[in-house]
Amino acid sequence: MAAVEMRLPVARKRLAQGLPRGAGEGDRDLVAPGDTITTDPGYMRGHGTYMDNEKLVASVAGVVERVNKLVCVKALKTRYNGEVGDIVVGRITEVQQKRWKVETNSRLDSVLLLSSMNLPGGELRRRSAEDELAMRDYLQEGDLISAEVQAVFSDGAVSLHTRSLKYGKLGQGVLVQVSPSLVKRQKTHFHDLPCGASVILGNNGFTWIYPTPEQKDEEAGGFITNLEPVPLPDREVISRLRNCILALVAQKLMLYDTSILYCYEASLPHQIKDLLKPEVMEEIVLQTRQRLLELEG
């Protein structure tokens, strides 16, 4: 007879309760749409603001950021704004002539040009009509890829490239979608964690957890995926990492290799499925927070 677990509804806890508030000054920088930021005509209008009768008015709810004469309002949660050099994880939505459309949680679908990827086998040549016909053999609708942002167009759309053996089609693993603002910008977004799995922390908030590949001879150009069954211990590590990332996101802690690893270590006393319980989430994230603070200070 299996025991059934039950829980009663409780009042929602305020997440920020235990945290120190920015002593008095935090409030001043928070604005909501329609709030006048300044009436001084010397300032320049940045993102999240608009001019209305010579007044600079906020158009999103968020934090005011000033850089010299430029005033921006940064919303706490938005879609992904591409920047050149970002690592992203995305899903192919459409195969067009000479390009793929990729969903990257951006305002417009990103494009991956046929000419900005390595051909399987690493051959370097102009792309011919045959290559165009074979595009679906490389990447189909629904495939996940990792890529780097090559250019950002004026309308905010992003052009991607996979001209490195690091990037390409993703095989077996787990995708976790988080808010882009929770991914910390770092030198590298590919991490082989010592717990036995690897993660790609896309700047666009798409996080890919996969078993660490044994040998890194990717002469296939990252388009042949390994379909051998992943052993159970690896799968358990991956699921644990996934639940840890969900816990970190639920408590709004920044995602980077150290925070994920600390959270993973804090989660070890618990069963994997228990990590989805709010109280366990809270506990392990609290431990993670403390260890991170110790590391800093």
């Binding site: 305020r14 997440l15 920020a16 945290l19 120190p20 508030r21 920015g22 935090g26 409030d27 928070l30 909501a32 709810a61 968020g62 934090v63 706490l76 949660k77 603002s181 408590q251 709004k252 802690l253 920044m254």
Partner: peptide, 18 residues
Amino acid sequence: LDRVVREHLRDAAALLGK
């Protein structure tokens, strides 16, 4: 509504450490 929004913002900003 403004009160609700500001409360939400303050919480979120405190969590993100801004």
